[in-house]
């Protein structure tokens, strides 16, 4: 079975305050004169076997939720990218 690398993003839900993102925005972006909203998060890359890229993404997401890689009341988990992995 082919292997895929799946990048998962674990970020705060929109209503959850993100002090790390606020600090990055205020102390780096604002100081540099770059207007941007910033949200901090975590990226986790998994390599797993699947029948295709869609299945790989779905498997990774299902596992991430089952293993509570994010707290469902606090975090959103999404698949950022799936790529073939040899």
């Amino acid at each position: 079975m082919p292997r895929y690398r799946v990048y998962l993003h674990i970020g705060y839900l929109p209503h959850i305050k993100d002090p790390e993102g606020e600090t990055i925005r205020r102390e780096l972006f604002e100081r540099a004169g770059i207007g941007a909203e910033v949200r901090a998060g975590k990226c986790i890359a998994l390599v797993l076997e699947a029948g295709g890229p869609e299945e790989a993404g779905a498997k990774a997401l299902e596992a991430a939720k089952a293993l509570r890689l994010g707290n469902p009341h606090v975090h959103a988990i999404e698949v950022l990218r799936v790529e073939p992995w040899s």
Binding site: K17, P19, E20, E22, T23, N71, V74
Partner: peptide, 16 residues
Amino acid sequence: VEAGLLPGALLPNDPP
């Protein structure tokens, strides 16, 4: 809290 034995969540301090 992570185990669900107590309600809620503990997040990074604000300010961080």
